[in-house]
Amino acid sequence: MESDVLAFENFLGKEGVLKDDITLNTTDWTGQFKVVPQGGNTGLVGASIPVHDEVVLSLSKINNSFSFDDTMGILKCDAGFILEDLDNKLASLGYMVPFDLGAKGSCQIGGNIATCAGGIRLIRYGSLHAHLLGLTVVLPDEHGTVLHLGSDIRKDNTSLHTPHLFLGSEGQLGVITSVTMTAVPRPKSVQSAMLGGFLTSNIIKIVTCRLIYKPRRAGRNVIGNALR
């Protein structure tokens, strides 16, 4: 810390570095720090980027705790886990995260919850609303209150489902530090196909077929007819 102070004094001068009474410089008129929680910083809307003189609170190093109940398919982990790393951990257990993103190599699970991320598995497995079970959250109050919301039970009707208040909250209500959610069985094989339709009505028929028909020959014929 002292070396950092000396480094600033070298190019700002001693008069340009305040070390004693810095209250006016570190708080705003409400007496509070301005903090921007930041996960993988992969969003495209600038929500995790400081605009003025905010303090960036990175969650990148909160990535130690990981547990998985393979009987119930319930995952509990720190918010700083990178999505791809988390998915790889579950792969060895025969499961996977129920959503997938192009930024999976750098986005973090806490940020995914804070933004209610979707991705290419949404139609098959549903949104995060269907999978989130619990959260640990630090509130932006003077005490840094820690809330343990929800539980690690798939169906828990003992109280209000408060974790959903923070799902998609973009860090406005508090900082997510731990996530409890359901995982889904990993498919033994995956086949990909590119389908193109000339009209919106064609696309609707394709999606409807995907939701109703099992991937048998008859189902393929129906999809083929939808493209015509």
Rank of each mutant, 00 (worst) to 15 (best):
Q191I: 09
A218M: 10
L86D: 05
G168F: 08
S58R: 14
M96N: 04
I82M: 00
L199I: 13
D152K: 14
L133P: 09
L132C: 04
N63D: 09
P140V: 07
F68Y: 15
R228W: 05
D28W: 02
C107P: 10
I206F: 10
T145M: 03
E170N: 06
P215E: 06
V184D: 04
K205G: 12
A114R: 05
N157Y: 04
L199G: 05
E9N: 07
G150A: 08
P140C: 09
G118I: 09
V97R: 08
D152Q: 02
G168S: 08
M194H: 15
C116A: 15
D87H: 12
T162F: 15
L44E: 06
M96S: 08
I206K: 04
S192N: 12
G168R: 06
L59H: 00
K14M: 03
L12Q: 02
V137H: 02
N10G: 06
M194A: 15
N202V: 01
A114D: 05
D100L: 13
D21M: 02
Q38S: 14
L227E: 11
G126A: 12
T71R: 12
S189Y: 13
T208N: 12
G224V: 12
K14N: 08
T145D: 01
L167F: 13
G110Y: 08
G224F: 06
Y213M: 05
M1E: 03
D78E: 14
N112T: 00
L18Y: 13
L128R: 13
N64V: 02
F99Y: 14
A117Q: 04
N41R: 01
G94K: 09
T158Q: 06
L135P: 09
L86R: 09
